[in-house]
């Protein structure tokens, strides 16, 4: 874009360019008054905790004595003490997997997540395991929102209980949260999700991200997804959503119980990088993303140049 200036060879245009540049320089002191310092943001996330309230038993073949809600809470406390801006999310399948869920129907999981002050969660397929009415009871119990951008819940028992997006402000940052649910057909008992209409996650995510970036002024859009990291076939996944949309910066995933060594970095429709991450399952790991957010000065140059051509 800066090339636009250099390419102006005739003298008249050079004068104009110089005039604009001078004006731009003269407002520099104005800029200083609203100068943006970098902001650090820490994003913590869990997925597929599957009611593992207690650490895994000592005789577990893979994760003996690992995980557990009370430990996770302590870890989160420690990180919140160290960092100014912390967000905590869950990407679905909070429920089902230990007798705690079978006996208490999800009450304990939600109450403990309230205590840990989760900022938002999305709905996983196992959230439907005891039917819509039981899920509605649990959502009402939650002090954090369930964000769901691609289920049409109108007329179902969940109508009005979830939100299509959430905007969170941390310091100077405006952060938009969307939630992507998996197609329930074949995964949940049809009786438990009747009247819930699944909508194309790619289309809904794209529309919602554009809205959040362009109309709501979000600096960052985070998708909480229960679609799954990626599949052998064309089935919609976090990687597919990342590739086929614009405006999403981070996808925190679940469903495929994927343990990652490092996050995937996928290029989206705008050529921008999308961070795709997941933190295994069972509450064995806490995912932690530390972002440094800087003001985007590149934009100013671009705009001055485009005005010159008017």
């Amino acid at each position: 874009m800066i090339g636009g200036f250099i390419m102006q060879t005739n003298r008249r245009q050079f004068i104009k360019t110089a005039a604009v540049a001078t004006t731009a320089l003269s407002v520099a002191p104005l800029l200083a008054s609203c100068e943006q310092a970098p902001v650090n943001l820490t994003i913590l996330h869990t997925n597929d905790v599957h009611s593992h309230i207690d650490p895994f038993p000592a005789n577990d073949s893979k994760w003996p004595l690992q995980g557990g809600f009370a430990r996770r809470a302590q870890l989160i406390n420690d990180i919140r003490r160290e960092q100014e801006h912390v967000l905590l999310f869950d990407c679905g399948d909070i429920f089902q997997g230990t007798p705690y869920f079978n006996i208490y129907k999800g009450k304990l999981e939600i109450e403990l997540m309230n205590k840990m002050a989760y900022d938002a969660a999305t709905i996983g397929n196992h959230e439907f395991d005891n039917g819509v009415a039981a899920l509605a009871t649990n959502i009402k119990r939650a002090q954090f929102p369930f964000v769901c951008s691609n289920y049409d819940l109108s007329g179902s028992g969940l109508d009005g209980l979830t939100i299509p997006f959430k905007i969170i402000r941390k310091g100077a940052l405006t952060i938009g949260i969307i939630g992507l649910g998996i197609e329930l057909d074949g995964l949940a008992n049809p009786k438990s999700y009747e009247q819930i209409q699944y909508k194309d996650p790619i289309k809904e995510a794209n529309n919602m991200a554009q809205h959040l970036k362009q109309e709501q002024g979000c600096d960052l859009v985070i998708a909480l997804s229960h679609l799954g990291y990626q599949y052998q076939d064309d089935k919609v996944s976090d990687v597919q959503v990342a590739k086929q949309t614009k405006g999403i910066d981070i996808i925190l995933g679940g469903h495929t119980h994927t343990f990652m060594d490092k996050p995937d970095r996928v290029i989206n429709m705008d050529g921008d990088e999308v961070i795709v991450n997941q933190a295994g399952w069972g509450g064995i790991y806490l995912g932690r993303l530390d972002l440094q957010m800087k003001a985007n000065n590149q934009k100013n140059v671009t705009l001055v140049n485009s005005i010159y051509h008017v």
Binding site: K213, Y285, N296
Partner: peptide
């Protein structure tokens, strides 16, 4: 709306 991710670090 003029903040962008300039650096990211991930831990599990």
């Amino acid at each position: 709306s003029s903040y962008k991710i300039s650096n990211s670090e991930v831990n599990y």
